[in-house]
Simulated assay, not measured.
Amino acid sequence: MRSHGPASLPRLGERQLATLEQELLKGPVRHGRPDQLWTPSRVKTAIGRRFHLIYTLQGVRKLLIRNGYSCQVSARRAMERDEAAVTGCPG
Rank of each mutant, 00 (worst) to 15 (best):
R15L: 11
R15S: 10
Q16D: 13
A18F: 06
T19G: 07
L20E: 02
L20S: 01
Q22S: 14
Q22R: 15
L24E: 03
L24K: 05
L25G: 09
L25Y: 08
K26T: 06
G27N: 05
G27A: 06
P28Y: 02
P28D: 07
P28W: 01
R30Q: 14
H31G: 04
G32C: 01
R33N: 07
R33S: 08
D35C: 12
Q36D: 14
Q36I: 04
L37S: 05
W38I: 00
T39P: 00
T39I: 01
V43D: 00
T45R: 06
T45K: 04
H52L: 06
L53Y: 07
Y55F: 15
G59I: 02
G59W: 04
G59M: 01
L63K: 01
L64D: 02
I65Y: 10
I65M: 13
N67Q: 12
G68H: 05
S70M: 14
S70C: 14
S70L: 14
S70Y: 11
C71D: 08
V73A: 07
S74G: 12
R76A: 13
R77S: 04
R77T: 05
M79N: 08
M79E: 10
A84I: 01
V86E: 11
V86S: 03
T87A: 09
G88W: 07
C89L: 15
C89S: 12
